[in-house]
C-alpha cells in the first residue's frame, strides 16, 4: 500500500485529526523558531534588511518538493492522491495582490498571525481578528462577483504541464533558482547592513 494513507479518505476521522494536530504543532513550532511570529522581523523582508521570510519559504518549498518527487519515484507516495490546489488565473493574481498589500500593512500573514497571537503579541491577535472579518465579509459578498471568482478555471494545473517539460527537469531549475536566490539574499543583507552603518556614521 502506498501513501498517502487512507486517513485522507475518512476526513474528520480521529486518525486524520490527530495528523492535522501533529502537523499543526510542527508548523507553528518552525514558524516561531524562525522568528516569523514577529512582525518587525517579517517586515525586514520588504525593507531588505532581513530576508528570513524568503530563506525559510524557499528552503521549505524545495525540501517538500524534492521529498515528494523522490518518494513518488520510489513508489512510496501515489501523487495522484495528493491534492494540488486548483488554478483560477485572474482571481489568484488579483487576490494575491490584495493579499500582499494587506500583508505589508499587517506585517504578518494569517498563519504567522496565529503564532504571533499565541506568543503574546497583541498586534498578531488584531491581524487574526481582521483576517477573520475580511474572510467573512468577502465570503458573504462572493455571490455578487461569482463570474470573476470562477474565471480562468484551469483545474489542478502544474507548471511542468504548462511549460511542457519533464517534472524532474523543472524541479532541477527551481532548486538552482532557489540556491542562486539564497546567495543573492546573503549579499543583499550584507549590502543593506553596510549602507545602514554608513548612514549612522
Amino acid at each position: 500500500m502506498s501513501a498517502p494513507l487512507p486517513l485522507s479518505l475518512a476526513t474528520g476521522s480521529a486518525g486524520a485529526l490527530a495528523v492535522a494536530f501533529g502537523v499543526g504543532i510542527g508548523f507553528g513550532w518552525w514558524l516561531e523558531r524562525a522568528g516569523l511570529g514577529s512582525a518587525p522581523k517579517l517586515m525586514g523582508q520588504f525593507h531588505l534588511t532581513d530576508l528570513t521570510v524568503f530563506k525559510v519559504m524557499f528552503s521549505a518549498i524545495v525540501t517538500a518538493m524534492l521529498g515528494l518527487f523522490w518518494l513518488a519515484r520510489f513508489g512510496i507516495v501515489d501523487l495522484s492522491r495528493v491534492y494540488v490546489p486548483e488554478t483560477f488565473v485572474l482571481p489568484q493574481i488579483v487576490g494575491g495582490m490584495v493579499f500582499g498589500a494587506g500583508m505589508a500593512l499587517a506585517g504578518l500573514c494569517p498563519g504567522t498571525s496565529c503564532v504571533a497571537a499565541a506568543t503574546g503579541r497583541g498586534d498578531g491577535l488584531v491581524v487574526a481578528g481582521g483576517f477573520f472579518a475580511g474572510v467573512l465579509v468577502t465570503a458573504l459578498a462572493l455571490p455578487t462577483m461569482a463570474r470573476f471568482y470562477g474565471s480562468g478555471a484551469r483545474g489542478s494545473l502544474t507548471l511542468d504541464a504548462v511549460l511542457d517539460v519533464e517534472t524532474g527537469s523543472l524541479i532541477l531549475v527551481v532548486v538552482a533558482a532557489a540556491l542562486a536566490g539564497f546567495l543573492v539574499a546573503e549579499h543583499v543583507e550584507q549590502w543593506k547592513a553596510r549602507r545602514l552603518a554608513e548612514v549612522e556614521r
Partner: peptide
C-alpha cells in the same frame, strides 16, 4: 494590523 488583516482576508478568499 486590522486593515492589513481585513485586506488579507479578502485576498485569501478570492485566491482560494
Amino acid at each position: 494590523a486590522l486593515a492589513g488583516g481585513v485586506l488579507m482576508g479578502g485576498g485569501a478568499v478570492l485566491a482560494r
